[in-house]
Design a protein around this nucleic acid. Structure first.
Length: 742
DNA sequence: GTGTTGAGTATTTTT
DNA sequence: TACTCAACAC
């Protein structure tokens, strides 16, 4: 391979440094994906490493597809580089080897959040904890434990003394684990955890994969959680060729257990780490880079680096406050059509970025009014639609009969006279039966024994319905085993036999008709996947349904404006980016700030700003429709942090009702905020901060009384660490937190 | 036992 | 606003 002219010196050096442990700190837009793909190509073409010995891990399916595409281009389509998300890789490994961990079969299915909640709900009822602890709370605890890689016992030790509900959480978590094991199901976190357990307990299996994946690459390393870190550590243990790329400034998944210190302290975990920095940005103009730098430099917990660009000129970043959320949307869409007219941009050059998806509604409406085509990223995915999951539940049961949640779903939809009451009866019967006989029967066993040994579970009238359901499953089972049956005709048979069409078309409601259309589309999707050899077996289809959330909107290549959450566009770029609803409480999100994650919000803002290549426009509204009516809003602190070279264009149109709006209103509010931020006391000694000081006792709405034990952070982001006794230690942003001094 | 309607409530981000 | 859950009528 010729050394590519498109690479700069540092990039070339990195590409050719193929052995040992390498860390690349790559700023936004510095060409990190390019470096990664070129390095893989270099390994194959220059170092003659067999492509099947190379592993490249990404975090999202989108990134995986992108990388595959680039590699196909470089290496031709028949290379064997294993490109995969963390979760897919683990699912793949477990499909081969999970039986070593005591699982009866390797046909596990995956429980999503809804399934998890249902399992937890059932556990809460059987344990009699209803009202003591919510499903959400319990799920959160379990997720936290799993992301840290802690078993119920370990987690109990971890939270005992800190959390009043530790005993209950322990019991729920234990029961939950047992439940999933019996259902032969895994949740998302289990995919990682079980892989880790497999590697730790079976050195021979680990070695098999170590010898397979001799060169390991991890993209977006800043997003790894402790379990993922451990898996990588184990995998590279033999050949020690590990190449990770990341940007601590783009770590935005802390809420999902990502540990930013995995990248910040990377060189402490491995020996002889070679570190490179990519700081030259090739994506954006100078004004955009300046704004991004201005924002991110307010973070304290980061590796020092400054993004720069050699590009000259470029449009100034535009800031604009609008009167209302509706008007903001109209202004943005109006601006889009202006820019299109003036500079010849296409629809697909534009992205409207939101902090949370509920914000996107107004923009959809406005784009519709202008009949401008758009695609919504990260909304409800096609496969997450209820009717598709209904169909999938039948397939899940065929694949993994122990999958209780899918069985319940299949029994209930389309409705066939079996409801909540019947199912609860059967579940209670199973519990009682298991206790009495020291057995381990599942819901599936009851359904199949309903006409003989388990007839007493429910009344004979409903039992007939269950029997019919059993017959249906048996027919599907038979079809599955039929000689030479193709996957798509099996799927089609399942849909026909379950009578989805009859159920949906009989109601003649608009929604039901569209639901049926979606099911038809699902069949088409399955056929497409078979045709391009993405899937072959039912097993493949099931894995794909849970791990690759297809969104037909995102797949299309049409000329459309993109509306997306910031999380969804990491790694992407657009010529013109609007960051909208930049308001206090929205961006940064109150919830994050209250939990002491302001720096992560700032990184999110940084990610958003650095998506823009040519133009960046940042807007906010003075009032926004919240769940309790119209609410006042003020511009986000990030707006002020970025303001260095900003032109504030005041554009306060008149509301439709003819209401005159004082132009000064927004400006006054902006001034208030500026004053608030500027007057924030310096935290020189970190002992005192305005009315707060070390040792002062405060009261919080949720956690009650506590004591300030630490004051940290920067001037613009002072952080109070408070000990609430039974509720544990929490962190608050001092400028935002609602705390009473007592 | 199911489906409908109404009230009440909740809102981050995703593999 | 939009969605979920609970009480009601069939």
């Amino acid at each position: 391979m010729k050394i590519d002219k498109v690479l700069n010196d540092v990039q070339n050096q990195i590409v050719q440094d193929t052995e040992g442990v390498v860390l690349v700190l790559a700023g936004a837009g510095s060409g990190k994906t390019r470096v990664l793909t070129h390095r893989v190509a270099y390994l194959v073409e220059e170092k003659l490493v067999p492509s099947h010995n190379i592993l490249a891990i990404t975090f999202t399916n989108k990134a995986t597809n992108e990388m595959k595409l680039r590699l196909d281009k470089q290496l031709g389509e028949d290379h064997k580089v294993f490109v995969s998300t963390f979760h897919s890789l683990c699912a793949y490994i477990l499909r081969n080897d999970i039986t070593n961990l005591g699982y009866a079969r390797n046909t596990f299915t995956i429980y999503d959040e809804t399934d998890q909640k249902r399992v937890i709900k059932r556990i809460l009822t059987t344990l009699g904890y209803d009202g003591d602890i919510t499903e959400k709370e319990a799920l959160r605890e379990i997720a936290t434990a799993k992301q840290l890689g802690l078993t119920p016992d370990q987690y109990y030790v971890f939270i005992k003394g800190q959390n009043k509900k530790a005993d209950k959480i322990y019991k729920i978590y234990s029961a939950y684990e047992l439940h999933l094991m019996n259902d032969n199901c895994l949740d998302f976190d289990d995919l990682l955890l079980k892989t880790k357990a497999l590697f730790e307990n079976f050195p021979d299996i680990l070695e098999r994969y170590q010898d397979w994946f001799r060169y390991i690459h991890v993209d977006e390393f800043q997003d790894t959680n402790p379990v993922q870190f451990r898996i990588i550590e184990l995998l590279q243990g033999k050949h020690k060729n590990l190449f990770v790329v990341g940007d601590d400034d783009q770590s935005i998944y802390g809420w999902r257990g990502a540990e930013i210190d995995n990248i910040l302290d990377f060189d402490k975990h491995f020996e002889n780490v070679k570190i490179y920095k990519l700081e030259q940005n090739y994506r954006s103009t100078k004004p955009i880079i300046d704004v991004a730098n201005n924002i991110i430099k307010n973070n304290v917990h980061r590796r020092e680096k400054v993004l720069f660009t050699e590009q000259k000129g470029g449009a100034e970043v535009l800031f604009n406050g609008l009167f209302s959320d509706k008007e903001e949307a109209r202004w943005v869409v109006d601006r889009i059509s202006n820019l299109k007219f003036k500079y010849g941009y296409r629809n697909s050059d534009f992205a409207i970025l939101v902090r949370k998806s509920s914000i996107s509604r107004n923009f959809e409406d406005a784009l519709n009014q202008y009949t401008m085509p758009y695609k919504l990223m990260g909304g409800t995915r096609f496969l997450d639609r209820a009717e598709i999951k209904d169909v999938a539940s039948y397939l899940n049961v065929l694949h993994n009969p122990q999958d209780g949640q899918s069985l319940i779903r299949a029994m209930r939809t389309p409705s066939k006279g079996i409801g909540e009451v019947t199912i609860t009866k059967m579940l209670d019967y199973a519990d009682k039966y298991n206790r009495a006989n020291n057995a381990n029967i599942t819901l599936h066993d009851i359904v199949f024994g309903i006409d003989n040994e388990h007839a007493e579970a429910i009344s004979s009238r409903v039992a007939n319905k269950v029997l019919e359901f059993k017959m249906m499953l048996m027919d599907m089972q038979d079809k599955k085993l039929e000689e030479g049956i193709s996957l798509d005709s099996l799927v089609k048979f399942v849909i026909e036999r379950a009578k989805f069409k009859e159920a949906l078309l009989s109601s003649s409601s608009e929604e039901d008709i569209s639901r049926w259309e979606n099911i038809q589309e699902f069949i088409v999707l399955v056929r497409e996947l078979i045709a391009n050899k993405t899937i072959v077996t039912l097993d493949d289809l099931i894995q794909r349904l849970s791990l690759v959330p297809e969104n037909k909107d995102e797949l299309t290549d049409l000329d459309q404006v993109t509306i997306a959450t910031v999380h969804a566009v990491k790694g992407l770029e657009f010529k013109v980016v609007f960051i909208v609803a930049c308001e206090t409480n929205v961006f940064p999100s109150v919830l994050s700030v209250e939990e002491g994650r302001l720096e992560e919000e700032r990184r999110l803002m940084y990610v958003a700003a650095t998506r823009a290549k040519e133009r960046l426009l940042i807007t906010w509204a003075g009032s926004r429709w919240g769940f309790s009516g119209m609410e006042r809003a003020t511009p986000s602190r990030f707006v002020l942090e970025a303001q260095n070279r900003v032109i504030i264009e005041s554009h306060f149109a008149v509301e439709e009702e003819g209401m005159e709006l004082p132009t000064t209103l927004m400006e006054n509010r902006a001034k208030q905020i500026i004053a608030q931020v500027k007057s924030a006391p310096k935290i020189a000694d970190k002992e005192k901060l305005g009315k707060y000081a070390k040792g002062v006792r405060v009261k919080h709405r949720l956690y009650g009384e506590g004591e300030i034990i630490l004051i940290t952070g920067s001037d613009s982001a002072p952080l109070l660490t408070i000990d609430f006794g039974d509720f544990g230690i929490k962190k608050f942003d001092a400028l935002v937190a609602k705390l009473d001094i007592i």
